[in-house]
């Protein structure tokens, strides 16, 4: 089923933000909607969006490839992205990331064996005064966790595993 069929109200609301003769502007919000479906953006979703917006599938794929928050393959249920840019690193973010990986038993870029958490290092998230910090991206959204410690993070991971909730 296409996005338009499945989420008619959302698609209509998104399209209403932009001039009718510039509906390509809706590609980014529609990609977020598509990502909600499977946790990543499938080829058929790109085709679907391309048809809705009178774009080529290549143009849609180019947008997916350019931006880091769009995924074109399956990752862990929770994508945990730790900022290790200069201001955070000056407050111990590199060590935090290293210790966190040690506790989870994975390397940066890897996913835990139960498919729950993927750990990544990311560029600045505009929270430099609250390092160490990370964001968690899941199917439904994205949330910040600031002034973190490894212990607090492990508690959060355990809670997420237990509740299975999506972040938003």
């Amino acid at each position: 089923m296409s996005l338009l069929q499945k989420y008619p109200a959302e698609v209509k609301q998104i399209l209403s933000k932009y001039p009718a003769d510039h509906k390509q502007s809706a590609v980014m919000p529609l990609l977020y909607l598509a990502q909600r479906e499977n946790g990543y953006i499938t080829g058929s979703a790109m085709q679907d969006i391309a048809e809705t917006l009178d774009m080529t599938q290549t143009e849609v794929a180019a947008v997916v490839g350019f931006y880091t928050l769009y995924l074109d393959k399956k990752e862990g249920k929770y994508r945990m992205q730790v900022c290790t840019d200069l201001p955070c690193a000056l407050r111990g973010a590199d060590k935090f990331l290293q210790d966190l990986c040690g506790n989870l038993g994975i390397k940066v870029g890897e996913t835990t064996s139960d498919g729950l958490v993927t750990i990544e290092a990311v560029m600045c998230l505009a929270a430099c005064d609250k390092a160490p910090m990370f964001q968690i991206q899941s199917r439904d959204g994205l949330e910040y966790h600031e002034d973190m410690t490894v212990d607090k993070t492990m508690e959060l991971v355990a809670a997420l595993a237990k509740s299975g909730r999506e972040v938003a």
């Binding site: 390509q24 502007s25 774009m55 143009e59 947008v63 350019f66 931006y67 880091t68 560029m123």
Partner: peptide, 20 residues
């Protein structure tokens, strides 16, 4: 969707138009 360059005003406009 995660791109520092979009803070540059003309890159931002391209992005808002649905492009890279």
């Amino acid at each position: 969707a995660g791109a520092y360059i979009c803070g540059e005003e003309t890159a931002l406009l391209e992005s808002l138009e649905g492009k890279r």
